[in-house]
Simulated scan of single mutants.
Amino acid sequence: MKYIVFILFTVMTNAAAQLMLKQGMMSLGPISFEGTNPLLKLLQIVFSPWVFFGLCTFVISMASHLYVLSKVELSFAYPFLSLAYVAVAIFAYFVFREDLNSWRIAGIACICVGTVLIAQSGRGHEEETASLSSDKIHSEIVR
């Protein structure tokens, strides 16, 4: 649980990147590749300010996630990324006026409950790992 700050940073930067990408694509309008060079269109999309900063934020999020993966188990860290769905849904409601109906709220509640259960399982596992490590060290010293 001591790396939870880094996990939550990963989640929030991931969600922020999604919001920036959405803003960027809204500012570009509907995309059509007809009558234009697809490579030039792709470059226009990638280098539009909101999309570019969204992609940069994804890189930061990924770097943070790699750090987290070097410290905790994948089966503990990865499910926390589902909280990005929660953050995106809530921020999209306020920023883009997207619908937040009862089905979405129920889904958000399920994600939150699942994440809490995973966090609880990680706490017990860290204690087991710590006791196993100290037992192993003790047995090495006794030898």
Rank of each mutant, 00 (worst) to 15 (best):
L39Q: 07
F94H: 12
M20F: 10
T13P: 03
G29C: 00
Y78I: 07
A109W: 08
I4D: 03
F9N: 07
K41A: 14
R123E: 10
H125R: 15
V88K: 02
K22V: 07
L117T: 14
E127H: 12
S27P: 00
E127Q: 07
Q18E: 10
Q44F: 05
F80D: 01
A119M: 04
K22D: 05
Y78Q: 09
L66E: 13
G29P: 01
S32R: 03
I45C: 11
P30H: 12
C112T: 02
F47Y: 10
E140T: 01
T36C: 14
L66V: 12
V142N: 04
F58S: 07
G114V: 00
S102V: 09
I45Q: 10
Q23L: 12
I45D: 09
L66Q: 07
K41S: 15
L81I: 05
W103P: 07
V59K: 03
F9H: 11
V113S: 12
N37S: 12
F52E: 09
M26D: 11
L81M: 12
Q120A: 13
C56W: 03
D135A: 13
M12S: 12
D99H: 09
R143W: 06
L74E: 15
S133Q: 11
L74F: 15
E126M: 08
L19T: 10
S139D: 08
M1N: 13
I45R: 11
L66S: 08
T36D: 08
L55C: 12
F53G: 05
E128N: 03
Y3I: 06
V142R: 08
P79S: 07
S70H: 14
L83G: 02
G114H: 00
V142C: 07
K2V: 06
R97L: 10
L40E: 14
L8A: 05
Q18G: 05
V72T: 11
M1Q: 06
E140P: 02
G124P: 01
V59W: 04
I90V: 13
L74Q: 15
Q23P: 04
A109C: 02
G124S: 08
V51G: 04
M25K: 03
V116L: 14
M20V: 06
L19P: 03
Y78R: 02
M1H: 15
S48G: 14
M26F: 11
L21F: 04
V5T: 13
H65C: 05
C56E: 03
F94D: 07
C56L: 12
V88A: 13
F33H: 14
Q18I: 00
S131T: 13
C110F: 13
